[in-house]
Amino acid sequence: MNLQRYSRQTVFDEIGEAGQERLLRSRVAVIGVGAIGTVIANNLCRAGVGFVRLIDRDYVELGNLQRQVLYTEEDARQRVPKAVAACEHLREVNSEIELEPVITDVNSSNIEALISDIDLVLDGSDNLEARYLINEACFKENRPWIYAGAIVGAGMTMNIIPGETPCLRCLFSHSLPSGTGPTCSTAGVVNGITGVIASIASTEALKILIGSSDVRKTLLAIDIWSNLFDEITIEQNRDCPVCAHHEYKLLGRLSGSYTTSLCGRDSVQVVPGSKTTIDIERFAQRLKGIGTVRYSRFMLQFSGGEVEFSLFPDGRAIIDKVKDESAARSIYSEYIGL
């Protein structure tokens, strides 16, 4: 195989020709091809990772282009599925590797199949529900994965390797109930942090794939707006249900959040998977900067751009003007949080 195009990596001692050949034989999956996922996919494809599966349920929208580096205005006009658009652009960058788009919502029924033929999983998702699922699937299938997330000017990433590192459940033992934490839609995010976090995660990916001894074992937490750079050692929780006891509750659960199309208009009701209580008034305050919000003690009604929804204290939301349940889940995840 001609390794000429990868000369900047092959002359770098830490990678070399042997490392490059390993990369070309490696298979990765990127779950979620948004701000972080596009940067990871871009880096890994250019670096010559042999097989890259890109998984996302969403379609490209204009509001994505501020940070999701692979997409164009034309993709947004055509509403191309992100997984497809990303693969098409990356094929023009590197036609020698294999790219596989998968347009789906990752759930307990499909995640094991999506990662079973993969050497490393990269997290480009936007919600903790998906990340807990990735965590369980990776421990069950004994696959390393890299957690990566960002919001406002801050981000975190951690390499999670079964048998070597603690897991995501050791880091966050419980998720915040739906609708109680900030999301990128309500709090914002700068493209510098998504790029930085994703670049670090994709470099760790190269190290893991070639078997480098320099793989980071800590949680990296940085805030490029407030200028904070931290490496935190996470202890393994000896009672962790996932990495200590190998209990994969979410994988066994047949439904997480539940969606139903409501008859009447193009609206879909999303009910979060676990119990939550939303402070409607506080939530209204949080949303008021990004659209029109009106509320009563029973509910809140939001409209901003194309997005319209009603949110109720038990966490259910009715998402209006959506064509399918997957689009409704995306809006829920983006504005309310899963």
Partner: peptide
């Protein structure tokens, strides 16, 4: 109020199950 909103409030705040929409 949208019928779906009324039905969601009845369910959420009052534990009353009804149906909203066009009823096929």
């Amino acid at each position: 109020m949208e019928p779906t909103q009324t039905a969601a409030i009845l369910d959420d705040a009052f534990d009353i199950a009804v149906r909203a929409g066009l009823h096929c």
